[in-house]
Design a protein around this nucleic acid. Structure first.
Lengths: 205, 205
DNA sequence: AGCGATAGTTACACCATATAACCAAGGTAA
DNA sequence: TTACCTTGGTTATATGGTGTAACTATCGCT
């Protein structure tokens, strides 16, 4: 292996040439189109061929950038996890009393889910058939859950139970809402969600 | 139209000849195989061709029984709704105090969901892309929700709020559990679910 | 200036849905 | 009982998806 020659001029982990820049740009463009397809046709409607057509290239060309359709899907999932994790951490990091932080966390999750229903359902909805999440996905899932646990850390014996309660209740409302199971029902999901978070926090000391 | 001739001997709405019996039998057999495929490969792995192969016929033959893959899926969804509706109604119909009925309802839903995760996620998970539920589906969904509302009917002003709270909390735990989001976490989902139902009922007078 | 890696192409194998046209058989009625 | 015709099955085909192989052109780099 003559890696030494390249390694001498480049720190190996930063392969940033014009080619690599172009590559990342194409990858980003593919993911952009993929999100649109996902929003319109769902995960089963995600088609590399259709994306290729929209980009004006043939389908096999995209296999230079993503090993498979599942590979693209994995990257989309990881990107969604990262996005949500950042927002949750930002909401929690703003400080304040634990209950205020939790309210902020719940709010930011719901708003993110409403803005990107397909993204939320991609993470917490029906799992894809034989797909197994990569390690980074579970790491990110933990990072999203961690601020909740942190806010309940004053009583270590009850931290997990309270965190789970908060999570499952928040998810219960959001998932049914973004899946459209509230349509036609005479109530305001936003008010209901706020009330649910509030009552959860007062019931969980 | 010469419908009069056939209508004279048969009451039209009961077409029960040898042909019709065979037809229903084949339809049932297809749905049987479909459930297995659904359990193994998810909704996107449901393949008419594969079912046909398992049944020893060619794929186009099945189009005599189901107009399309979506049509088959619709029937599966309706069958799942009917099954769950029957069980919930049975659990609620057993009588007892409202809180006992609600506990029975929650338990039966969770057990049904754990026994048929794909069925539960088919009803309450990520909705299929362009698919719109038929009227009977929404009717059945209401029938499942009705016993909950009935158990909270003592205070009409609060019935909907309490019913929604019960539903979203039950769904929050079950959906995350059957989607596998609890795997690796150090707690017992059954105990947690029971505690969540109990605390919900004591918090909702 | 020229070498070599890389992005794109076409061609193909495979699988899926769905339709059309055709054939065989079984139920039904005279 | 026989003749009809409805119905279930077939093959052939159009369409569209994933993914691989082989080839070509071009662009970056030395």
């Amino acid at each position: 292996m003559d890696e030494t020659r390249t390694a001498r001029r480049q720190p190996v982990n930063a392969p940033t040439g014009p080619r690599e820049r172009y590559r990342q740009q194409i990858r980003a463009e593919v993911q952009e189109h993929a999100w649109n397809q996902l929003a319109e046709a769902g995960v089963s409607g995600l088609s590399l061929k259709a994306i290729a057509k929209q980009m004006g290239v043939t389908a096999p060309a995209l296999y230079r950038y993503f090993a498979s359709r599942d590979d693209l899907l994995t990257e989309l999932i990881l990107a969604a996890y990262r996005d949500l994790a950042h927002r949750v951490e930002a909401a929690a990091g703003a400080g304040g009393a634990p209950h205020d932080r939790l309210t902020a966390i719940g709010t930011v999750i719901r708003e993110w889910a409403r803005a990107n229903p397909h993204r939320y359902l991609l993470l917490y909805g029906t799992p894809v058939p034989g797909y197994t999440a990569p390690a980074e996905a579970t790491d990110l899932a933990r990072r999203i859950f961690a601020p909740v646990q942190d806010a309940f850390s004053h009583d270590p014996d009850e931290t997990l139970r309270r965190s789970l309660t908060f999570w499952t209740r928040v998810h219960g409302v959001i998932s049914l809402e973004v899946a459209g199971h509230f349509t036609g029902m005479p109530f305001d999901p936003a008010r209901f969600f706020a009330a649910e978070v509030r009552s959860t926090l007062t019931d969980l000391p």
